[in-house]
Design a protein around this nucleic acid. Structure first.
Lengths: 347, 347
DNA sequence: GCACTTTTTGTAAGCGTTTACAAAACATCC
DNA sequence: GGATGTTTTGTAAACGCTTACAAAAAGTGC
């Protein structure tokens, strides 16, 4: 007689379990779903059969029958940078707690495809969608909104105002950081922007300008270098700024990665950070704390943004009609050793 | 009479489309699946109805009926570091081409949960599993193998030998890099290891040792600092090595991130790279090229590893019985400016 | 032990597709 | 214009589960 231990192959269904334990398939279903209406003895028998046969539930079928998948989709422009990783960590944590699974889509490849892509892929598989740092959201948002498909944007305060979103107080963060440099005595402060097609980059620039204005300092176009959030732009931006006839004494980069590039460029010229040039970043990625010198930066609550966005999405799933909102989480200035009081460097 | 344009809500099924276009649901299914056995005129009529009603297929139901989901799962220890991001890029690209979707699982949170976690979550939802850099794979591999569940390991040449895997030639990479330093005249070469619980970290260390041996140089335990692949370990490792009575003239870090830390530490002591100390990394993450100086490193074909692993998985799905293999993709030494010929630095 | 209530179990229908098979429509030839 | 062969279309059953409802069993109080 063959061993009927854990089946290694083939599909074990609810019917097999029912037969093996001498109950009906309905009862097996109830056991699986922890329905209280089942006698302890019966439950034990069924559980035993489940073990023996190595039964695991078929989520497809369950989803189909229940009409819900317990999967949410996350759309990211790309993996690889730590910034998105932090956000993902928050999303993942929250999803995990709720027992949801996560389907990952990247735009970078299919960006060119038709706008319906998101809607069509997503329909029937994911219950909601989290859009991280969408670059040209106009494409999908139309479809998503039209279909009333639950979704929330993360870190994009762009043109669209109808979709719920969570971001950070980029403007204030940049304002505070700039003000801090001004407080240290710096008067000429260089600024390296991010990709200006992103709302957050624009906001940071505006915050910088506003702080200068608030302190009656001139806004010099030559002190503003247009970057793109990549390290290389930090290097080039710093070089461009330091080549100026009247170079700045401090550089504010729109993210930490560019700040790192700027730090390298400064040192490569034989100048010291922060003695000769103060440098400040934005994001507070994990690396910033272990640089030499540790980087002064504006902390973005990235993980929290992920968490909050996920919770918002769950709210929407619960009460489909609910008024959606746009949330901005506070940034915080983290003072470390890459900034110092101004002193007349050359003369 | 109400407008029957794109429905914004509710579910449009194959039956609705059938009714709207005056054909049977079977025909609609055929149209959806591009079955050639349907008259052009009929096809057009159905397509039109699909458009009008805004029908999109329900993947759950399709999966259930077809018995395949077109989803594969990827299990990663964490997001956030660029290393995994590169691998993911390769996976994603390959999946995309094949029209598969990607479900992402992270271990870091549920690691403590029972070993069946992978199997139970996965069964019925994903057709195969890619395990990226699994840290304690013994837990799941047993279940996976027992169930003959298609899976491939990425970058883990550990104890387990039965599962198919793709990795890189870590040993050779480290050997070549070390030999390169020796060729530059260095005799005392410091080594900062990765997490020694990972096979790749062990292999790199062995490659380093083998190169020394091959050139009849002594293996000095004090020159080997045990790190963990994080930047901080690079800083500490470099400091420890340089504090030695007889410090090394070159440092080989087991990954680029630690090499960056080491570079910072070296400079912080007023020494220059590469003039005083040569530094070499491993991985060739995108950042390494834009450091100052650009980092000499061993390139790992991360994206390619992702691609190859995914292809292997597809092969396994196609021919379930197929003999599985373990592949090692070649590493390559990338010479940049963080390494220089040895010269007697102090004396 | 009976009538009654409550709990447990079984059954049938449904979720939205696919697909094998049968039926109907069309084309082709003599 | 019928016999024949080829497409095209319709129908029914299946995929593995949930769930409302009905039936059976078990538990009560007298």
């Amino acid at each position: 007689m063959p061993n009927d231990d854990v089946q290694t192959t083939g599909k074990v269904t609810i019917f097999d379990v029912a037969e093996a334990s001498g109950v009906s398939y309905g009862t097996v279903s109830r056991v699986i779903n922890n329905d209280p209406h089942v006698r302890p003895a019966t439950r034990a028998r069924v559980m035993d059969a489940i073990q023996r046969l190595g039964y695991v539930i078929n989520r497809q079928a369950q989803s189909l029958a229940r009409g819900q998948t317990h999967v949410i989709g996350v759309l990211v422009p790309e993996l690889g940078n730590g910034y998105i990783g932090e956000i993902m960590r928050g999303i993942d944590g929250e999803l995990d707690q709720a027992g949801y699974d996560l389907m990952l889509f990247t735009t970078h490849r299919r960006a060119a495809k038709e706008a319906n892509y998101v809607a069509s892929l997503v329909q029937g598989v994911v219950e909601g969608l989290l859009l991280v740092l969408p670059r040209n959201p106009a494409d999908y948002l139309g479809v998503l909104s039209a279909r009333k498909f639950p979704h929330v944007l993360i870190d994009h305060q762009g043109i669209d105002t109808t979709s719920p979103a969570v971001g950070a107080t980029n403007w204030q963060g940049a304002f505070v950081a700039t003000e801090y440099l001004i407080g240290l005595g710096h008067r000429r402060i260089g600024f390296i922007t991010g990709s200006m097609d992103l709302g957050c980059a624009q906001d940071r620039l505006e915050g910088y300008k506003a702080a200068l204005r608030a302190h009656h300092l001139p806004i010099c176009p030559e002190l503003i270098y247009e970057g793109d959030f990549f390290q290389h732009a930090g290097v080039q931006g710093a070089n461009a700024l330091l080549d100026l006839p009247e170079p700045p004494s401090a550089i504010f980069a729109s993210n930490d990665v560019m700040a790192m590039g700027a730090m390298d460029a400064v040192r490569h010229r034989g100048l010291r950070v922060p003695d000769d040039i103060s440098i400040i970043g934005f994001d507070n990625i994990p690396q910033s704390a272990v640089l030499l010198p540790p980087l002064t930066t504006v902390q973005q609550p990235l993980e929290q943004m992920g968490r909050v966005a996920t919770q918002m999405l769950f709210d929407m799933l619960q009460e489909p009609g609910k008024r959606t909102s746009r949330i901005e989480l506070p940034t915080e200035l983290i003072v470390r050793q890459s900034t110092a009081p101004y002193r007349n460097r050359i003369g």
